[in-house]
């Protein structure tokens, strides 16, 4: 009987050790062979435009951060960032990008690292773009802990803890995906979105609702505007050499 007990204990410890070894959350290695930019700057054009919200914008809901007292600022009035509308209906945090039209062109991966910060119990910026293989550093600038949990559909999911201020997690996305949601399971209101593309033609609208996609080769493109709650819209635009095309997107509430 003792023999069997020892065997059971040994198997349990073995299984435990095997399970403990499965927590690696290393970033996917990037295929970052240097490639020259295929676009001739002499002929490159651009697409600019503005994204607006039509109608009465929804009132930004107040965020309740009291599940973590460290996040609550005295007199703070944090609001939900899902729909941010500025002057003249300017819609912020819209990811605008070239969805189609670039053919088989391949673009170099930028060497600069992008930073997704955690500050004041929020992800900053709320929406951003990155290229496949580009370094994204997720930083904890807060004095309290966070967990960085990316929940992509096509890329590798990861969930890593950052219990101390200044901690940094580096990641490179391996494939194109619009969008990769980020969350913090400790602070459920914390959300961010990263659009991952295999080219550099993307932008995020700021307080003015404007965007600019520079350095585009002449051609006809499908431009998509993505918003986290209002959905997506696409438009087609054709630009000739050194021309700047203009597109406008107008979203309305889906509720």
């Amino acid at each position: 009987m003792r023999r069997r007990l020892y065997l059971a204990l040994a198997l349990s410890v073995g299984a435990l050790a095997a399970a403990c070894g499965g927590g690696s959350q290393d970033a996917a290695p990037a295929d970052t062979a240097p490639i020259a930019n295929p676009v001739d700057p002499a002929t490159a054009g651009a697409v600019t435009g503005r994204v607006t919200f039509a109608g009465t914008p929804p009132q930004a809901a107040a965020l309740r951060m009291d599940s973590d007292p460290n996040c609550v600022r005295p007199g703070g009035n944090a609001t939900d960032e899902s729909v941010v509308v500025g002057e003249g209906g300017a819609l912020q945090n819209v990811f605008v990008y070239v969805k189609d039209g670039l053919g088989n062109l391949r673009f170099p991966v930028p060497s600069n690292a992008l930073v997704l910060d955690q500050k004041g119990c929020r992800y900053v910026p709320h929406v951003m773009g990155a290229q496949v293989g580009q370094t994204v550093e997720v930083l904890n600038s807060d004095p309290m802990l966070h967990n960085v949990h990316a929940v992509p559909a096509a890329n590798q999911e990861f969930n890593t803890g950052q219990p101390l201020p200044g901690m940094k997690h580096t990641h490179r996305f391996s494939t194109r995906e619009v969008m990769v949601p980020f969350k913090c399971d400790v602070h459920p209101w914390m959300r961010a979105y990263i659009g991952v593309l295999d080219h550099p033609y993307f932008a995020v609208t700021g307080p003015g609702g404007t965007f600019e996609l520079k350095g585009l080769p002449p051609g006809t493109y499908t431009i998509e505007a993505w918003h986290e709650t209002l959905g997506t819209q696409t438009q087609s635009v054709t630009i000739t050499p050194q021309e700047t095309g203009n597109v406008a997107f107008s979203f309305t509430s889906t509720t």
């Binding site: 927590g23 599940s67 460290n70 309290m144 802990l145 969930n159 803890g161 399971d185 400790v186 602070h187």
Partner: peptide
């Protein structure tokens, strides 16, 4: 998933995890 690691808790041995960090989903 508010504690992303296991069997540790944010790198601490489970029984020594600081109480002041027990917030939110943790």
């Amino acid at each position: 998933l508010s504690v992303p690691d296991w069997p540790t808790t944010y790198g601490w041995f489970m029984l020594t995890f600081p109480l002041d960090k027990m917030v939110g989903g943790i």
